[in-house]
Amino acid sequence: MSAVDAAKKIVRPYGDTTGDGMVQVSFTLPVSHDKRAEGAAVQLANRMGIDPAMVVHAKPMGDGFTFFVVYGRVNHLVDLNAVQVVERDFALLSAKEVNTVVKQRLRRKLSVVGACIGTDAHTVGIDAILNVKGIAGEKGLEYYRELKVTNLGAQVSVPELVEAARAEKADAVLVSQVVTQRDAHLHNTREMSAAFREAMPAGRRPLLIVGGPRFDESMTDELGVDRIFGRGTTPGEVASYLVHALITQRKAMA
């Protein structure tokens, strides 16, 4: 927060005059365009706290839909002291930054092994994170020059995964679990982490990361893994975390 911001406690949106509270919103209502539709748009804006609300644009779209642009003054105040944000505990890096850190500080490729374990055949998640294609416009980990990615695909058994992690000298193991019938995702994850604990001594174990839409991100200890990623995680976040956990943080502790 800058010095200018620190002086302020309560703020309102800014149009062209301090305190005018002006905002602009656009939305679609599932009604045909007529007087009543415009009235409905004003009513919605009012309920959003915009008062007075000006419907500056209304345009019919196809059958039974109208698009609106509304300008107006909101009566809400924002108390900056009451703002709460959950900070990510690692810095988000670009692909280039990830590559640079790995190259300069690890001085070899960082090896990542990924799989869907158990009977789960949904490779959507692991492929979104690992395939070059990636997701939401972000390239997957394969795209990172300094990461060596081995994607084992679907229905990999835990012993196979441990063996592959050993063969590839994995720095990190990524496991994706989509199917949650009878808590399969939790059982599979526990089985996986136990197998790694058994097969390798603490210092040599790869970082264990599990991801899927139904995980609770705070269950790491219970599941015996280092990190859980939930719905909407992007490859960039995973890559940044890998750098943080395996290089930046480790060096800082050493």
């Binding site: 656009s26 939305f27 679609t28 345009k59 779209m61 196809g62 839909f65 698009f67 939401a136 416009g137």
Partner: peptide
Amino acid sequence: TEAVVTPWLSDRDI
């Protein structure tokens, strides 16, 4: 809205 949402009806219209 590329990279924001899968296109809404209004995005397509615009």
